[in-house]
Simulated scan of single mutants.
Amino acid sequence: MATTKWIVDPAHSEVQFKVRHLMITTVTGYFEKFNVEVETEGEDFHNTKSIVFTADVNSISTNNEQRDTHLKSADFFDADNHEQIRFEGKDYEELKPGFEKLNGELTIRGTTRPITLNVEYHGTVVDPYGQTKAGFSVEGKINRKEFGLMWDAVTEAGSVVVSDEIRLHCEIQLVKQ
């Protein structure tokens, strides 16, 4: 069977992260520039040969310029030396129809670690322009310190400023090439 290539439709996709701030609220951020490339056998995502996701660290946005600048600094992502975040999918396992686990390797700030993401496949359709598209919701959690994002601060009252756990949420629409 022939290999099918898929690329992200950036107008209909988003990559978000959520982190607890002062342990009382959640701050949401996202990457404005990212790419997803997938290769499958035919159009069957259960026979995936390759999944590669990259995000441009300099495109990070939390709707706060000062915080975004801090996140790009050496305290966090060190964008001057590590321009991209990269995920390579290794194993796509169906749990039940429409729900899968995607195991792979995530690289942040030069550190690569295995992670598992929960994937919900929403189906494949042909849009009004004749393009074949597939939709997914992807969720997971990482510990930022495992990737070298070590900056910490504690308030005078002893509260942690930024949690170690980062929740990931992506809505991805792929276009068949």
Rank of each mutant, 00 (worst) to 15 (best):
T3E: 15
T4V: 07
K5Y: 10
W6K: 10
I7N: 09
V8L: 13
H12D: 05
V15R: 05
Q16S: 08
V19C: 06
H21V: 01
V27L: 03
G29D: 02
Y30K: 09
F31K: 00
V36F: 08
E37K: 14
V38A: 12
E39D: 15
T40K: 12
D44C: 09
F45R: 02
F53Q: 04
F53W: 04
A55L: 14
D56K: 10
D56T: 09
N58Y: 03
T62K: 02
Q66I: 06
H70Y: 03
K72E: 09
A74Y: 07
F76G: 08
D78Y: 01
D78W: 00
D80A: 15
N81E: 11
H82N: 15
F87C: 08
K90F: 00
K90T: 14
E93N: 13
K96D: 05
P97N: 04
G98E: 13
G98H: 12
F99G: 10
G110H: 01
T112Y: 13
R113H: 07
L117I: 07
N118T: 15
V119G: 07
E120P: 11
G123D: 03
V125Y: 11
V126D: 00
D127Y: 07
P128I: 10
P128V: 04
Q131F: 12
S137W: 05
S137Y: 06
S137E: 07
E139W: 02
F147S: 01
M150V: 01
E156P: 15
E156W: 08
V160R: 11
V162T: 10
E165Q: 07
E165P: 04
E165N: 12
L168S: 07
L168E: 01
E171Y: 04
I172K: 13
I172P: 12
